[in-house]
Amino acid sequence: MEILTDPFEVSFVFRALLAGSFTAVLCACVGTWVVLRGLSFFGDAMSHGMLPGVAVASLLGVNLMLGAAVSAVVMSFGVVVVSRATRLSRDVSIGLQFIVMLSLGVAIVSHSGSFAVDLTSFLFGDVLGVGSTDVLTIGIAALVGIVACVVMYRPFTALTFDPRKSQTLGLRPGFAHVAMLILVALATVASFQIVGTLLVFGLLIGPPATAVLLVRGIGRVMVLAAVLGVAQVYVGLLVSWYAETAAGATITLLGGLTFLAVLAVREVVCRVHPANANDNHVQ
């Protein structure tokens, strides 16, 4: 038992566990909609698109989350405007801004005297460096995200499965879409300090995708994804402590391995019991 608890008696590791758990819960709620709506590419692009804001904030000596938030809002607004102003598909719009924002971020960071160190920190995070204020900020972000998912549950569900019916029912699909993009931005901003801009995508997608393989129902997927995410953070911190590996990368690696393991077991079960091979549609 001491092996499982000793690392968390160290204050900065315990703060990392709290911050990581809050982040996992937020990403579980928002990531469920990302997976169901097929917004994975947007989530990936958003995680990279925060880099310019984070880099500028670092150079100016202001809070990194503030810079990330500004950058995320700019990218979300840009995606909506370009998609409406042109005939280009949403993926093309996202891809173009993804390239611009990532390149701009690297260009800004390159002016720093510690380019390699700064870029590594931005891309891969520093979960063990979060302070008490960061934990509080991430906790508030998680609470806001959970409340927003509850309040917007009906519009998000209608938008995900039947956009036309959403319009007919007066659920304002356009507003719901923008609200969902804002929630994705919130989740990525809250997560980047834990796992970095490159690995946010893993925490946002991994647990919800795994949960979709195991249970039916949006609510059940969110709850299971939150449980898986928190467990992933806990085990990841333990492994990184004893194996001396990068904490953020270890956390997201566990998420990917968990998904692959569940998928493999599910395929074996479906072959042995074909009756269980029905598509796992989330309702």
Rank of each mutant, 00 (worst) to 15 (best):
4 L>S: 01
7 P>C: 11
9 E>K: 07
10 V>L: 13
16 A>R: 06
18 L>D: 13
21 S>R: 03
23 T>V: 08
26 L>V: 10
33 W>C: 02
34 V>S: 05
36 L>Y: 06
38 G>D: 12
49 G>T: 10
66 L>C: 06
68 A>D: 13
71 S>V: 07
73 V>F: 12
73 V>L: 15
78 G>E: 14
79 V>F: 04
80 V>H: 06
85 A>E: 14
90 R>M: 11
105 G>R: 01
105 G>L: 10
109 V>N: 06
111 H>E: 15
119 L>K: 00
122 F>K: 00
129 G>K: 03
130 V>N: 02
132 S>D: 14
134 D>P: 02
135 V>P: 01
145 G>N: 07
152 M>Q: 11
154 R>Y: 05
156 F>H: 08
168 T>R: 10
169 L>C: 08
174 G>D: 14
175 F>R: 02
181 L>W: 06
182 I>Y: 05
187 A>Y: 04
188 T>F: 06
193 Q>F: 03
198 L>I: 12
198 L>R: 00
202 G>E: 13
212 V>S: 08
212 V>T: 11
228 L>M: 03
231 A>K: 01
235 V>F: 12
238 L>E: 10
241 W>L: 11
241 W>D: 13
246 A>W: 01
247 A>P: 00
250 T>H: 02
253 L>F: 09
260 L>C: 12
263 L>H: 08
264 A>N: 00
268 V>Q: 09
275 A>C: 03
280 N>Y: 08
281 H>Y: 15
